[in-house]
């Protein structure tokens, strides 16, 4: 199975291991990520304003490119996934946005939200199946107590994201079980890490990351996993300083793809 793939800006530099291990693991699980030949940064934050069109166009271009390749579009970064999935929903369901974006782009065929957007984790859950991920595991991460950190962007707003139960998600815990480790359920796993305020208001974001890590370590978490480069950055700056990894790093370790653990 081949998917069109949107890596996003950060996966080309600071979060290169999120990208690399995802690509390297895919063939072992029966699929392939084909990077879109041309893609532009999603902008990181979904533009809520109904009259905001220009800021949604990079997503529309990626979505239309995947349509012309005839494939579903896979994302990895939580922010890219959030922005592209929501813009796709707009293009499907919001007449004013669809019309104005198509007027801007003047594509050969107007885009109407035809592309199916999937996060890599959704491919693992819904296409490969965690049972089959488990079958491919060579080095189960036995005895490791891992806390899933969901953050905001994959889950909310749940009506559009339709990723998992927004208050009691299970996809990352199921992933953790599939790679042979033990998931730790803790209250702050779907609370905010502080997001972009960490650029200018470090105190505020650090307070939030501290709460997340205190909550996680209070329940016995030894390490956290995430799909978001900004969450990883913010969590690493917190007091508790728990190790934080991208979920693909642990997947690669479990599948025997990664050289070092």
């Amino acid at each position: 199975m081949k998917y069109s793939y949107f890596p996003g800006c950060t996966l080309k530099n600071k979060a290169s291991s999120l990208d690399r291990y995802a690509r390297e693991c895919a063939p072992l699980l029966g699929f392939e990520l084909c990077e879109l030949p041309e893609w532009q940064c999603c902008g990181g934050v979904y533009p809520l304003g109904r009259d905001e069109t220009a800021t949604k166009l990079s997503s529309v271009r990626a979505l239309a490119a995947a349509r012309s390749e005839g494939r579903d579009l896979v994302t990895l970064c939580s922010a890219c996934h959030h922005v592209i999935k929501r813009v796709n929903d707009d293009m499907k369901n919001v007449e004013e946005i669809r019309t104005s974006a198509n007027n801007y782009l003047a594509l050969d065929e107007p885009y109407r939200g035809e592309t199916n957007v999937l996060h890599y984790l959704e491919v693992l859950r819904d296409v490969v199946g965690f049972e089959n991920v488990k079958k491919q595991v060579k080095n189960p991460l036995k005895g490791k107590k891992i806390g899933a950190y969901y953050g905001c962007l994959l889950l909310r707003p749940s009506g559009v994201m339709a990723f998992d139960d927004p208050e009691d998600p299970t996809i990352l815990e199921d992933f953790i079980r599939a790679i042979g480790a033990e998931p730790v359920i803790y209250p702050y796993r779907n609370e905010c890490c502080g997001g972009y305020v960490s650029l200018k208001d470090r105190e505020l974001s650090r307070g939030m990351a501290d709460k997340v890590e205190a909550s996680a370590s209070g329940f016995g978490t030894e390490m956290l996993i995430t799909a978001c480069p900004l969450c990883l950055y913010n969590l690493k700056k917190s007091k508790a300083a728990l190790p934080v990894y991208y979920f693909t790093e642990l997947l690669a370790e479990a599948l025997g793809v990664a050289k070092d653990s």
Partner: peptide, 19 residues
């Protein structure tokens, strides 16, 4: 001066878009 060696580009583009 707000950046450090680990600052992800995601942080910069998000803050720019928001602020």
């Amino acid at each position: 001066e707000m950046c450090d060696p680990d600052t992800p580009s995601q942080l910069l583009v998000s803050a720019y878009r928001r602020y």
